[in-house]
């Protein structure tokens, strides 16, 4: 067996290089942090770091669900609309039934819509792009049907104080994001469902042959994605004290950008929450840093576009060296 060479037992340096190759977003994140801290003295202050984390957390929570769905080789374009519906229900219903039941129903609406998305994908065999593109349009319609064209305002302002808990500079929202991300990283790495996600995303037929219930599996992941979108919406409604019918518009695009920036692949079978956290933070740092430097907001949009294409090209390049 001597000639069975095991590439795993390379030098520690080699291992580190491999890790960085898989998580190149963290290198990029470190670079952006260095650049912005050199460019602006305010960037690396405790306050600003807290801001970045809170700002990033909203897209971050959406990105967690999106990562699950994307490792499955699917996509969910409806998260922005689900977020708006949950946010509207949480505020609109609390006058009738109290805060927590309303929040619960908001969450349930996200879970239910995620379930609908997943069921449609699994039963019809349509691509999730089409199913959730329909959802993106239709669920936004639901929001308007429920709330009309006006923003719903919270009556009891103690509602907006719920997320005002800080751990040092870190807000509850940010903590929630990290806790959820770590939890789902654990799900991905240590549970049957998580391991199934990679198997299904990489080779759906092999997964099916191995006895994995692919349909149920996908429904679960879409439900997770919808639920997380609802959590994001509820946190947003708490932060703003209002629920706008247009809340979260094109957030699904930002979310996809964050996830892809992290390195998770649209084709499925590859990705992790570590990568997504990196992508989310990079996006937040870029947006925050550019604003600190007083660049006009068009620069932000153009940089985002450029970075995304760059990330994709980089991934293509590294992708060819790594693995197969």
């Amino acid at each position: 067996m001597s000639s069975v060479t095991d590439r795993r037992t390379g030098s520690p340096l080699h291992n580190l290089l491999n890790l960085l190759l898989r998580n190149h977003i963290w290198v990029f994140l470190a670079l952006t942090v260095v650049v912005f801290s050199l460019a602006s003295p305010y960037f690396l202050t405790i306050n600003n770091v807290g801001n970045i984390l809170t700002q990033g957390a909203f897209i971050g929570i959406l990105a967690i669900g999106m990562t699950m769905v994307m490792i499955d080789g699917e996509i969910d374009l409806s998260v922005g609309a689900i977020l708006a519906l949950a946010s509207a229900l949480a505020i609109g219903l609390q006058d009738h039934m109290g805060v927590w039941p309303a929040v619960f129903l908001g969450l349930m609406s996200g879970a239910a819509l995620g379930f609908v998305n997943g069921t449609l994908v699994a039963l019809s065999g349509m691509h999730s792009f089409i199913v959730t593109l329909g959802g993106l349009i239709g669920i936004r319609g639901l929001v308007f049907v429920y709330s009309g064209e006006n923003a719903l305002m919270v009556q009891d302002f103690s509602y907006t104080e719920i997320p005002e808990i800080y751990l040092g500079p870190i807000s509850l929202t940010a903590i929630l994001f990290f806790v959820l991300a770590l939890f789902f990283q654990w799900v991905l790495s240590s549970t049957r469902h998580g391991r199934e996600t990679y198997a299904v995303g990489d080779n759906i037929e092999a997964a099916h042959d191995a006895g994995i219930n692919v349909k149920r599996h996908k429904i679960i992941n879409f439900t997770i994605c919808g639920t997380l979108a609802a959590i994001c919406g509820i946190l947003l409604s708490m932060r703003l004290g209002t629920a706008e019918p247009n809340a979260g518009k094109i957030w699904e695009l930002w979310t996809i950008i964050a996830v892809v920036l992290g390195g998770t692949r649209l084709q499925g079978g590859f990705g992790s929450m570590w990568m997504t956290i990196g992508g989310v933070l990079t996006l937040a740092v870029l947006r925050n840093g550019l604003r600190l430097l007083n660049t006009p907001n068009y620069v932000e949009l153009m940089v985002m576009g450029g970075v995304l294409v760059l990330a994709l090209a980089l991934d293509k390049l590294l992708n060819h060296k790594e693995d197969r």
Binding site: I75, L253, I256, V260, Y298, M302, G305, L308, V309, A313
Partner: peptide
């Protein structure tokens, strides 16, 4: 490159260009 991401990036870039 993946068409979805490329045109998404272009969407963002063009929004910036508009502003």
């Amino acid at each position: 490159l993946n068409a979805l991401i490329v045109t998404l990036a272009m969407l963002s870039f063009l929004q910036g260009l508009v502003l």
